[in-house]
Design a protein around this nucleic acid. Sequence first.
DNA 1: TTGAAAGCGCTAACAC
DNA 2: GTGTTAGCGCTTTCAA
Lengths: 351, 351
Amino acid sequence: MVTLAEVAQHAGVSASTVSYVLSGKRSISTTTRLRVEESIKELGYHPNAGARALASSRSNIIALMVPLRTDMYVPVMMEIAIAVATTARTHGYDVLLLTGEEGPDAVRRVTGSGLADAMILMDVELDDERLPLLRGGGTLGRAGSRPGDDQPSVLIGLPADTTGLTCVDLDFRATGALCVEHLALLGHRDIAVIGEAPAVYERHTGFAERTLDGLRSRARELGIRLLHRPCEGGYAAMAATLARVLDERPGTTGFVVQNESAVEPLLALLRQQGRAVPEDVSVVAICPEQVAVQASVRLTSVAIPAQEMGRSAVEQLMAKLDGRDLDDVVLIAPELTVRASTGPAPAGAPA
Amino acid sequence: MVTLAEVAQHAGVSASTVSYVLSGKRSISTTTRLRVEESIKELGYHPNAGARALASSRSNIIALMVPLRTDMYVPVMMEIAIAVATTARTHGYDVLLLTGEEGPDAVRRVTGSGLADAMILMDVELDDERLPLLRGGGTLGRAGSRPGDDQPSVLIGLPADTTGLTCVDLDFRATGALCVEHLALLGHRDIAVIGEAPAVYERHTGFAERTLDGLRSRARELGIRLLHRPCEGGYAAMAATLARVLDERPGTTGFVVQNESAVEPLLALLRQQGRAVPEDVSVVAICPEQVAVQASVRLTSVAIPAQEMGRSAVEQLMAKLDGRDLDDVVLIAPELTVRASTGPAPAGAPA
DNA sequence: TTGAAAGCGCTAACAC
DNA sequence: GTGTTAGCGCTTTCAA
């Protein structure tokens, strides 16, 4: 392994000079810099991560905590994770992958050991047990604080109480509202919401409840009848749910689907029952773009902006690490793209 | 931040004693150990990762390189990644998430900086540009080698030349053979293979080609007619592919599907054309269990054992780090589960 | 613009 | 069974 000292010797300068060439923290004459850079390349030098972390108290690593359960929105999580990793790299950071398994202990372990300088948490629950450890984080340098007291962090998702936390999320409330508006504008008066699996609501994951909130309050304002049913993914569960919905509200002409693995089953079932999309019923999905365009009917949808969520979370974190001030909560505005699955409510529909 | 020295002082012992209590590398009297452990808990001590890495030349981190493109088998990749992370933790290792983006440079960076002790590569191509850097890795301690010369590594996937490499993968050749056998045994003589997207073959990802190999050679042995068509995911692409297949081989009664996002579209299209599954045509999928059981017809399938692949890759790596000898190539035997999508070939089918 | 040198917190000889 | 101590490779004052 090549060390900084070896580079220094090779270039005929002192160790500190090499260090400063690398960090750019003090000015170096061009000739010296060139010589050093030449030596670095020639010797194939890479600074030792451990030594650097020890001397500088910064690991240049951010921890990303992903949920353990792989039952939900998996492609989205993956896309976020990759966006986090690539964005982090552009800032000179690497990403440590933590699973939710260890729970709060992982937070303590990473914080305590200085393994990571900061962390990003995905799939935060409304009342998450990891939150107390993170509140007020990101105040490095505040009077009386010692380095390491603190773990700057950003949440992807929105807990019930965001005091002292920085959060990034799609504005699911607005998303719900947007879906209702779109259908209402097309004349639909009876809307059914095919929600996430019951477990998601029981777990009190924020996004599902917020979406419902948005859907309900906008529906109330617009005088729309709304029926919400949680639904497991898959064909069988969707069939049962659909039957119940149509039994209870036969006049339903609009669907909002939030469980991506229920989308295709729903379309298949409607087709099977002779209900044409969008002539007889309209369907709006809340799902990744890819799912919307690959479905058997190109779906009108509100996209889940996974990339942007990941990228934005990292930007927030970098700002914190730089001591910059920033928003506590970044809500990404939803965008509804009209495709082939929604159209005017059928003429004969009950007003 | 609490240091080892503070713990030592608190417990009234020397620093090395504390260190040895932690590592267990020499025997400690019970009373001393108890006192030290008490102090550690009381002070909330966590060893500093950087200092540890510097002093011991081991970071206790393994790097996991995931493909950048999120277009393929995403849930599987995620499941593998999570299995890797959780298994690694049981061995005291953390996982660093690298995207394929940086390519070979990432390998050099991680190797050179001592950021990770070892690495796992996913989605390896038949002739991967990162391989030359890894061949012969894992020989730490061999005469003449200096620490850091080497990057012990394990691949998930199988390149063309496995010399000097350790690989873990599902035995896709056997998988292909198994699918053909199953259908042949049911009397099917004309089988169509709905493969991965053309890009996957162009990229020469090993698994797709190996599956095809297995399918073809077993078909030849059994006198089965086989037609292979690559296929993008989604409904539209599947429709076009299916039309071409049935045009070219109208007598087709068996399908093997390897692109999971083509499965549901295929089932929908067959239904739409009045071909009953499994009465008229049989379908075997190569996909995760979840996809197989959630499909509109419960699918006879060969599962992709994502968890086991991740776990196994880590076990191999741990063995290498311990200097143990091991297999170069671990092929996981495929298992075919019969569900509701396959049955005897229809009586009228051409022999 | 550059160099010298004091640590950062831990591990692992070496001593007893 | 335990203590002493010399580094690990780097960053960052302090001095010139």
